[in-house]
């Protein structure tokens, strides 16, 4: 066991605020065995190759080394338009309970595709460990949608990184459901290097029981007229804890770039804890940057209105949470997937 520090923010604040990084006192890397519980549904061929992951903002050397020697290496080279989503399903069970996946997606110029990466545990008791990375390069004029579904159980440890580069005119859209893990450390980095490139991230997260979530979203904007949009919606219950850190960094030269960042946290229990640090860093004048975050309980009037129609408080709460998530759910543009996630939300908010 050892002490590790993950998810460092691009700017430090006073130590006493307790949000500069995420410290784990009893960190232990598990033994990496074979992992074969992968289902791939794809029109194009996927290679088992690896791309060396070198994060700009450290997530801890041990985890990075592990990722570069993972037990699942996938290289998705999108060299033509792909009509049906590429779906990759990872299932962790009692025997195969350690997944170290290094997924690389390269969207070639002008291509259009959707990739879904789904992580789940076979049952609630599996003691799973997941360390994964999704490396994305969106080449010029490409359009790529990446859907990351963390549906692990609440016993798991989950470390996940997303590392993106958007070139000229590329449109990269992320939809993230961060639901599982007794400890979930999410690291998102985007390098908007291309002019008029566009990156949007829509996240929904849920923390219940004793779940802990630490989220570090960072976007560096270099391209002129580039656009970054980060929208994060969450619900916390019981004694769950969440740290949200989001940074939009406008670099000199990114004229006419626009960045928006919004985090909204619903507190469903008195004992849930929410910390947030939405940073805006700016060294270019000709930009528009906005951020906002808010936290609080569900509007009593809304609850009352729904309950007046004969619905229990718990169900009413769920309805309101799902209503808040609906913007993200709609973006999935897939009814089956949407229903699956709604079921997950219902299950988790019991």
């Amino acid at each position: 066991m050892e002490k590790v520090t993950l998810n460092e923010t691009p700017r430090r604040t006073s130590k006493s605020f307790g949000i500069n990084n995420y410290k784990i006192e009893d960190f232990e890397l598990p033994e990496v065995k074979e992992f074969t519980n992968v289902t791939i549904d794809s029109e194009i061929e996927i290679e088992h190759d690896t791309y060396d992951f070198k994060p700009k903002f450290s997530i801890g050397n041990k985890l990075v080394n592990q990722l570069n020697n993972g037990n699942q290496k996938l290289y998705i080279n999108i060299d033509k338009n792909v009509n049906e989503p590429i779906v990759i399903d990872f299932e962790l069970d009692d025997k195969q309970n350690v997944l170290i996946d290094n997924v690389t997606i390269k969207a070639e110029e002008g291509t259009n595709a959707t990739v879904i990466l789904k992580y789940k545990t076979q049952n609630d008791a599996v003691d799973a460990f997941h360390n994964g990375v999704c490396n994305v390069t969106a080449k010029a004029n490409s359009k790529l949608k990446v859907i990351i579904l963390n549906l692990l159980n609440k016993n798991s440890e989950n470390y996940y990184s997303m590392n993106n580069k958007t070139e000229e005119n590329a449109i990269l859209e992320y939809i993230i459901a961060d639901f599982g893990g007794r400890r979930t450390v999410t690291n998102y980095y985007s390098n908007l290097i291309g002019n008029t490139s566009n990156n949007s991230v829509n996240t929904m997260y849920i923390g219940t029981g004793t779940q802990e979530l630490d989220q570090n979203y960072i976007a560096e904007v270099y391209g002129k007229k580039a656009n970054i949009d980060i929208e994060v919606y969450g619900a916390l219950k019981d004694t769950a804890k969440k740290n949200f850190k989001g940074t939009i960094d406008f670099k000199t030269g990114c004229k006419k770039a626009i960045g928006n960042e919004n985090e909204y946290c619903m507190l469903l229990s008195k004992t849930a804890k929410s910390k947030a640090l939405p940073m805006l860093l700016c060294s270019e004048d000709d930009v528009q940057g906005n951020h906002s975050n808010s936290a609080g309980k569900i509007d009593e009037d809304k609850l009352y209105y729904i309950m007046a129609r004969g619905i229990s408080k718990k169900e009413a709460q769920k309805l309101i949470v799902k209503a808040k998530f609906s913007g993200v759910l709609e973006k999935l543009q897939d009814e089956d997937l949407k229903n699956e996630l709604i079921e997950e939300i219902d299950k988790r908010l019991v």
Binding site: T13, F17, I19, K270, S274, K275, L277, S292, A295
Partner: peptide
């Protein structure tokens, strides 16, 4: 640079933060 931290320890709260730069 805008670096705002919030640390919310109860549900019965209305917290909001917004920032604009330009």
């Amino acid at each position: 640079d805008t670096i705002p931290v919030s640390n919310i320890g109860t549900d019965d709260v209305e917290f909001s933060h917004e920032a604009k730069i330009g």
